[in-house]
Design a protein around this nucleic acid. Sequence first.
DNA 1: TATGAATGAGTATTCATTCAT
DNA 2: GATGAATGAATACTCATTCAT
Lengths: 206, 206, 206, 206
Amino acid sequence: MAARVKEDMGVKAGGADKHALILDAALNLFRHYGFRRTSMEDIARAANVAKGTLYLYFKSKDELFEALARRLAELIEANLKAVAARDLDTEPKILALFDAKLGFLYRWVLSSPHAAELIDSKAQLSATIFESVDRDFRASIAKVLRDGIRRGELDAKSAGFSVESAAETLIAAAYGAESGAGSEANFQDRLARIVRLCLRGLKKSA
Amino acid sequence: MAARVKEDMGVKAGGADKHALILDAALNLFRHYGFRRTSMEDIARAANVAKGTLYLYFKSKDELFEALARRLAELIEANLKAVAARDLDTEPKILALFDAKLGFLYRWVLSSPHAAELIDSKAQLSATIFESVDRDFRASIAKVLRDGIRRGELDAKSAGFSVESAAETLIAAAYGAESGAGSEANFQDRLARIVRLCLRGLKKSA
Amino acid sequence: MAARVKEDMGVKAGGADKHALILDAALNLFRHYGFRRTSMEDIARAANVAKGTLYLYFKSKDELFEALARRLAELIEANLKAVAARDLDTEPKILALFDAKLGFLYRWVLSSPHAAELIDSKAQLSATIFESVDRDFRASIAKVLRDGIRRGELDAKSAGFSVESAAETLIAAAYGAESGAGSEANFQDRLARIVRLCLRGLKKSA
Amino acid sequence: MAARVKEDMGVKAGGADKHALILDAALNLFRHYGFRRTSMEDIARAANVAKGTLYLYFKSKDELFEALARRLAELIEANLKAVAARDLDTEPKILALFDAKLGFLYRWVLSSPHAAELIDSKAQLSATIFESVDRDFRASIAKVLRDGIRRGELDAKSAGFSVESAAETLIAAAYGAESGAGSEANFQDRLARIVRLCLRGLKKSA
DNA sequence: TATGAATGAGTATTCATTCAT
DNA sequence: GATGAATGAATACTCATTCAT
């Protein structure tokens, strides 16, 4: 998996890039043992550096965590941009957007048995970091819905929703896909069903 | 609020019932400060007993937490039974069921700034404790859906869902109502919209 | 020496008095190794208690030090009271007062190779703690000088000093007795000579 | 003040003399923050060199400190020589000598809020370094006293002191001028009064 | 039952020193 | 000579749990 992290999280394989090396080691440990139960000692050992070295790259354990969150946010942002550019039908596009954000998050954070701690840990902090990503995401979803309405596929109004309200509701519902999903397959499955069900609820009634 | 806890959480007011007294104190502190930041010392002080006394009633901090979860589960179970007995239309009944479970959970746990930690703390554990509640809950929701189908209001099949799948999807979606709700009013609002949207998606298409 | 500490510093020998036990151990270590080089672990070991126990009696290492300073100040205060009550001639009384304060301090602090660090450590703090002792001390010295003047033994004015100024100068000079004294005997010797010389300087010139 | 340091402490202004450059930076930092709180990193930054460079000039932080002490001692020695050569009356000469040693020390070390730590730091070490200065100083003071006796101004014997003992006592007393002086003005004032008082004590009694 | 004094494992962070370049 | 990235030893403090009373 280390290899996959490097690919997926954008770290060059052979890199002498200690910064990324440390972040990789940390993410890995945080996922397995949670934030508190992972000591700086553990991270240093996993990254093959001395404890002091961690502090050359990150001022504190908290800042290390922050850097991790930031990197995650950047990658999600990039994912979202890529998906937004693709030409897809309404439902596939919504699903692709959710996968770019929620799916990615699931794979790297939510699937961890310590997801809650990781999210909670610095909730305030993460909120700030993910704020712009969230905004973009909401805008993208809303745009797809608007397109669907323009094409006559959807009709939020007759369902009693403004476009914004529909987007917010859909997003909230989708977040539920994670709760106790257990496996990524199950998560994807739930997500697809939630999206399908909600979009059907937004269809023009005959 | 202490008073309300006692009422709502089923603790007799004047109780020499230390067991419940301790649980009340603990829940209160856990909600405000989280699980780790609340020390046994804190709980003892809040419950007006000595630290050692806690260990007469609970083998460990973890078991205390477990007992808390168990009590919560029992109360939810009771709530669900009461709602299940009421005669309501499909959507109101679904909403009432969600309020009995999710709403209750929101008020006592999810609204805490440390909800994630509380849920995470002993995720494995809680899963076991809430298992039967979850099962009953799913069954209740499924029953309401089945009734709706029987009455011709809903048509899961044409929507591409089995009743069970529809129930599971609806429940998952509803869980999303909590994510970053911020206030109970907002939570209730989101919940209502998610339910409305999903049920509309299950309506017979003309 | 432990025994002497107990006697001189007012600790009951067989005492289950952990508070005093810890302070004794700490003073001993501070004198030998200085404040920073003495770890809480060291103190605990020397006092035959667990590290955590130290924190039952003192909130922090600094507060432990503060308590030590306070105890020292109290003992000096008591010494001064006792000496002030004695009926002695001018020079013997001055010497006795200096011994009650400086001598005591020398034996318990100044003779340490880490005296400077101990005094510096929390200079601000110590200053506050010793403030009232210092004030009383200055007053006592001034009183003896005034008595000497009244009896015609001394004549500060013709020497160009007010009583207060003479007292302050004498005290400052006496403090110099410590600088690099090396042993208590040498310290006492210097002190006696400084006092004798200064008092001679205050004598009525014929 | 940097300029004054350079002048007073004998460092050539434009010097590529890293050795002196580093010592200046170090003294400055030690005075402001103390020995322990000043890191090699700090010194390097202040001296505009890399951390490793410090170790090209000084084997360790302790040796750097030692070099500083040595330089101080040399400057004091020079000061003393200059004063010794001047033709002054007894009291002014004694005062000038004290200023050359104690005054200089006060300005560069004792006035620092971390004086105690600086003196303590390597007490043993400093003692050795200042030994010869101290010897010379004592000799100079003794010589002035002897001259005073020869001229009939002083009479140590009738005061009960040998010349050496009188010198030692006077010096010890003068060291007390520093204790809690607070400002250089106050220090000078105390010093003058101590010297005046002691010399009066050595005067021929009529 | 009830107490609370005592325990001691566990951890983030700093900084003097080294050494490959 | 000069650099600065890397090292790792050292240390105060918290808190769940125990147990003698």
